[in-house]
Amino acid sequence: MSTLTEPALVAVPAAGAAGTVELTYRDAINAALRDSMTDDVRVLLMGEDVGADGGVFKTNSGLIEDFGPARIRNTPICENAFVGVALGMSLVGLRPVVEIMFADFLPTAGDAIVNQLPKYRFMSGGQCSVPVTIRVIGGGTGQFGTQHSATYESWFGHLPGLRVATAATPGSAYSLLRAAIAHDNPVIVYEHKALYGRKGPVTRGEVAEIGKAQVLRTGSDVTILASMLMVERSLAAAETLAADGIAAEVIDLRWVRPIDLPTIRASVERTGRLVVAEEQVHAGGWGATVISELTMGGVAWRSAPRRVSLPDDYPVPYSPPLETLIVPSAAGIAAAARSAVGL
């Protein structure tokens, strides 16, 4: 057993400077991986082309140089198998992070994600834990076409045993990934490929609380609940709404499983109005769940909740003007908020 917990043979660099620094979303992910691997020799990163040239989205720059090819482990193209391998590793004491290059490929690892990771501990009667993190890159606006543009952020929100997080800011990208890696259950962390270049404050060493949403802007007229790219667009919408005299509160959902209903509810109880901004089909997603839960919980709506989402019946297209049209915009979110307040 001892080999599993011995440090790798490479020199491990010291963790980056503590304190708050400005990083890009991409570098925040790099920092989270680096800090997690430095702090804990059981952590490793695995996936297709994760090592060479910093990985396909350049989130892994320098990691193979610093941690070596055993811990930054390049795999063949075989998602279902390498997620299964991660599960096996976790059973003997490792804490693997698996990178799935595009969220659209999650279904090729479908069995491992649906039938294995979330149920493994349960069907053993609690004999094991499965500390596997899946990093997955999703989202539209990049003209990547219909098989490379989904978020699918709610798909795995239906699975007891699993945690699902979404990163909207560099700070969240860092702290959520660190939380996922430190957590003893399988966690899927969604990254949005349109956000990699965004800059923001990151607190090195911060580990997010599992299941906690984040209020990013306070306001008393309407609550806007969003994830990933939609958070940025909701903040932009809130700016334009402020110019119209509407005070919007913007909440970053952060966790699809579990959803932070207390934080959302506290906000909606003050505003009485809700817009969910989702880069996904609404039906069956977290937005619909939130509205349902709040309604069942007796929230007194001042106006009917609104949703801004992908079309119900139209996949993400390649054609640039069509893609721009269907992915919710700041203007679309602002319009929904105005309508919620009756303007």
């Binding site: 193209i77 659209d104 490929f105 090729t108 003209q143 990547f144 076409g145 219909t146 098989q147 490379h148 297209p317 390649y318 054609s319 069509l322």
Partner: peptide, 24 residues
């Protein structure tokens, strides 16, 4: 019709029944 893009040049009339962006 422009919805497929670079990864999906498809023409059933010519026997081209699929250009796939998912490996395998």
């Amino acid at each position: 019709g422009g919805v497929g893009g670079s990864m999906h040049l498809i023409d059933f009339s010519k026997g081209n029944i699929g250009a796939n962006a998912i490996v395998g």
